[in-house]
Computed example of a mutant assay.
Amino acid sequence: MKKTLSPMFAALAMGLAAAAAPAHAQGVTGDAKAGANKVAMCIGCHGIYGYKASFPEVYRVPEISGQNEKYLVSALTAYRKGDRKHPTMRGIAGSLTDQDIADVAAFYATNGVKEGAADLPAPKEPDAKVAELLKKGACVSCHGDNFSKPIDPSYPKIAGQYPDYLYVALRSYRDDRHRTWGRGNPIMAGMAKQFSDAELKAIAYYVGSLPGQVMTVPEPRFK
């Protein structure tokens, strides 16, 4: 499913991404091997396939292996700064240094990734209603072809992500000022605030149904 990007929107999004890039990332290089020794606080949720968080509501935690490294750095930095307000993730990210964040991101970006993993089957086309919602939100303008090739690595791959997580994430961007689950991001807030809960859920469940590159790599002790 190839979509045409809006050049104006894409240029704006790229500019905002550059402006929002975490300053600490300058000069900090992630080490995946070092990161493997720093994920003890992560594997209890992200190392169990289908693991469900219970706060602030029940949903599956995101699959983060194979995710863009730069996005993972950005997300962890946002939790540490408080731009993302989830208490558990804020507590974990707050304990990490810039180097820790870079190393953890490098580990998960490569964890379980195999040669040829970028080759995905063609996705199913959305129905007319969902197609209109995706067009209204200009989702492909940032997340790229088939929602697996973002125009900038600071944006996430979202195809194949757990639909219930995507729905909660979209609502968190829409409810950006909520003290428990809000997420501060001007691009995503502008998109999400256009939609009702039902419309956000329709978007999330379509994108989550697509073939994607993100995955959960089970921690051996939890198999």
Rank of each mutant, 00 (worst) to 15 (best):
G30Q: 08
I187M: 07
E199Q: 15
A198N: 06
S141M: 11
E219L: 01
R90W: 13
M1R: 15
D83M: 12
S196R: 02
R84Y: 15
P211T: 03
K124W: 03
S148W: 00
A122E: 10
G47K: 01
K157T: 13
D31H: 03
Q67C: 03
S141V: 12
Y155P: 00
R183D: 01
V28T: 07
L170C: 03
Q194D: 06
G144I: 09
K52E: 15
L134F: 03
A109F: 07
M8D: 12
Y205M: 07
N37I: 00
A189Q: 06
V140I: 15
D176G: 06
D152Y: 15
E125M: 09
A25H: 01
P7K: 05
A138P: 00
A106D: 05
I101V: 12
Y155L: 14
D119V: 15
E132P: 08
C42N: 12
C42G: 13
P218R: 11
F107Q: 10
R80H: 09
A34R: 15
A78E: 04
A36P: 03
F195S: 05
K135E: 14
R90M: 12
P87W: 04
A13E: 04
K124Q: 11
T216I: 12
E125H: 08
M215L: 10
N185P: 09
Y162V: 03
G94W: 02
G190N: 09
I64M: 07
Y206H: 14
C45W: 15
K114Q: 07
A25Y: 02
A19F: 01
Y71L: 02
Y71K: 03
